[in-house]
């Protein structure tokens, strides 16, 4: 087994400590040690995007990040996209409204990728920009069209608010 390392990081706003084996992926730590279910193991090779989380506001494939790497960092998962009053944040709400969800396995990853995109780029987004941003998120059910519609709509809303 590997050496264990103590890390501190923030997870969806909570300051946490953990002791993890040096080889453990961030995805394994989030799912197994912190019982989060939104980052999903779709391939384990950074090809499908189902495990997308934000580290320091940037979308990352949690299966290709070691837990030790987030020492001192801010980690956010799709769980943080539900507000404390139970309502959904703009991006997931738009995904629901647009009918972008079928089996939904890929959806937390898409919601996180899109949230990171909207935080970085203010104002209405072009469809092409959204398609490009979703390139690393595979979906087998929906054909992406409605997810793109939703993110486009959310980018407009954001401008209004």
């Amino acid at each position: 087994m590997s050496v264990e390392v103590e890390i501190r990081f923030s997870l969806n706003g909570d300051e946490l400590r953990a002791t993890v084996p040096a080889h453990r992926s961030l995805l394994a730590m989030l799912r197994e040690d912190f019982a989060l279910t939104s980052p999903r193991l779709g391939c384990g090779e950074g090809e499908c995007g189902a495990c997308t989380v934000m580290i320091g506001g940037q979308a990352r494939a949690a299966c290709l990040v070691l837990a030790v790497e987030v020492d001192g960092a801010e980690v956010e998962t799709a769980e943080c996209l539900r507000r404390s009053d139970g309502s959904l944040a703009a991006v997931p709400a738009a995904l629901v409204r647009a009918g972008a969800v079928q089996c939904g396995f890929c959806m937390p990853g898409i919601a996180v990728t899109a949230t990171a995109l909207l935080r970085q780029k203010r104002g209405p987004l072009e469809r092409r920009e959204i398609e490009r941003a979703l390139e690393g998120n595979l979906c087998r059910c929906t054909g992406y069209t409605k997810a793109i519609d939703a993110i486009e709509a959310a980018s407009r809303e954001e401008e209004r608010s």
Binding site: G46, R60, A61, L64, G136
Partner: peptide
């Protein structure tokens, strides 16, 4: 290059 998630890393 790859995807946004990979480019960020």
């Amino acid at each position: 290059f790859a995807s946004g998630q990979i480019r960020n890393a």
